[in-house]
Design a protein around this nucleic acid. Sequence first.
DNA 1: GACTGGCACTTGATGGGTGAGAGTGCCAAG
DNA 2: CTTGGCACTCTCACCCATCAAGTGCCAGTC
Lengths: 338, 338
Amino acid sequence: MSDDRRLDVLRAIVEDYVATQEPVGSRSLLDRHQLGVSPATVRNDMAVLEDEGYITQPHTSAGRIPTDRGYRLFVDRLSTVKALSPAERRAIETFLTGAVDVDDIVQRSVKVLAQLTNQVAIVQYPSLTRSTVRHIELVALEGSRILLVVITSSGRVEQRIIELAETPTENLIADMRSRITRATVGERLPEASLRLADLIQTFETNDRPVVTSIVTTLTLTFSNERSDERIAVGGTANLARFGSDFDTAIKPVLEAMEEQVVLLKLLGEATSGLSVRIGSETGHESLASTTVVSSAYGSDDLALATLGTVGPTRMDYPATMAAVGAVARYVGRTLADN
Amino acid sequence: MSDDRRLDVLRAIVEDYVATQEPVGSRSLLDRHQLGVSPATVRNDMAVLEDEGYITQPHTSAGRIPTDRGYRLFVDRLSTVKALSPAERRAIETFLTGAVDVDDIVQRSVKVLAQLTNQVAIVQYPSLTRSTVRHIELVALEGSRILLVVITSSGRVEQRIIELAETPTENLIADMRSRITRATVGERLPEASLRLADLIQTFETNDRPVVTSIVTTLTLTFSNERSDERIAVGGTANLARFGSDFDTAIKPVLEAMEEQVVLLKLLGEATSGLSVRIGSETGHESLASTTVVSSAYGSDDLALATLGTVGPTRMDYPATMAAVGAVARYVGRTLADN
DNA sequence: GACTGGCACTTGATGGGTGAGAGTGCCAAG
DNA sequence: CTTGGCACTCTCACCCATCAAGTGCCAGTC
């Protein structure tokens, strides 16, 4: 019984602190929430919550603020998912439907996510490794150069220009094109790479150097880490809300935003559902007062990549989670239509 | 004579203020620079400089700070270009030579420029409109889809997939390919667009719908504003050096960084040489305490695009200008080799 | 046993007062 | 034209007293 009320108190503290950004005391808490008890009782509850590590005091005679653990409990058990307003839904929808290609979709979703949440938004480009090969093209350019084009199921088009030692015949090119197509189209990229390795042996010894050179480039393209790791970032101006201390609150985030590797780890191994990593849970000391909300997106059963927001631990969790989830759904749908 | 010394005083003020970030008074100025005169004399000079609008006082009994006008004079007449150290040169060179394609070059130069200057670096992707058409390819995909590939002299590869109403014959595709190639290869993009417009009439009436559809897409690609306007930004963590006041010093810059249109205007109509826009000269009220140093880059006679840095007006002008100039040169050279 | 009112105590924030330090402007003399 | 001297003006850091908000705890009440 009293246990229930203690949780109510914790919820109230989180909500108030998020709203006011100031430590909340027993009295001011009762001004905003009618719990039907006296300040003294609330104080007792607070003492217990502090013992259990859910809240803490900046200094002896101040109100309480939630700890990471407190936010965690709030997210897991105390918050009800806040539905987006119809206006917000419409905003996402209209904003995304205007997109002309994959890059455009990603850039637009970063923008809409940043605006919706008032936080820093990051969106990973649809991953190549999880999508399949849709089309492969070889085109002879002037000299002994060859243009290689790969189109994947996610709609991404990758191209490479290969400088060959010798100029291949038209026939050889056509031959390579059809055999490579047969071996790879429809396959996931990692599998396609495997198939390619076997392919070289099936060509005449004479042709091997050219084939090898092309297959190597193709394999590189398939396992290309650079395009696989591309990430779009937006809403950095919202960093203003993170706090006033530049060096501890803002600079670390800006630095992280420039390090793709860090960003990818942050977006991380989000499963199908929504992932929330609060403060120390991010695994980065410098992001101690930062929360990452992320979600995988994709079509139906296939997770393509991840998107999310980075904000202060003191954020509006229900709203942020709703926004991230909604954008992930819409992006997945839009990509599928594409 | 005394006019010369007054300029020396101004130079000393700029240098000291840039180094210490604090208003510089007559005494502390003489501690660092031996001008061979007394503080009182310096004070008189300062009074004159202030009358002429080159320096100003934050408050009555404080030292002087350079005004935008003061910096301008310093840049125009008082600063000697600081040569980069051999180590810095090597850094640029090794960093850029590892690049594999145009996108990579741009991303690397942003990084190197940001590190070199400790400021925010921005690099515009090589412009399509100023480069020429090098190769055009049409490839039939499954169904009635066609892959269109354009390669420009700057090394950029653009591709579009076109969904046609009807499936064109192999012959028609080959025909279109050769005629389009003849009409456009070697031309600047705007001229190529003009040539295309005339081309449609030369095809059979039956083929017109297909041809029109392809030519339209091609024209769109040529005048594509999106890829034309792409910009890479880096070193935002260096914003820490801009000042302590987030709202007036940092937020405006972050906001500008997200608005491509603003960025492009800032990089602006830099001619072949180095352009320095100080404070109000940027034309943006919110960037009043910000200086943009930019330079066009390109191969030989052809300016391809612009790059530069954004920093506080209180910056080390000689070093920044040297770095921007050097990176621009190296990038131009690297692109030309490509 | 749980809740409440009351009370003493702690602590950061606020505002006025003061002295030191840095700097200026100006004047009269060299 | 330059210089030394001097009176004057600010800001900044510091101290101190006061205030408001909040806590913890205890004794009393339902």
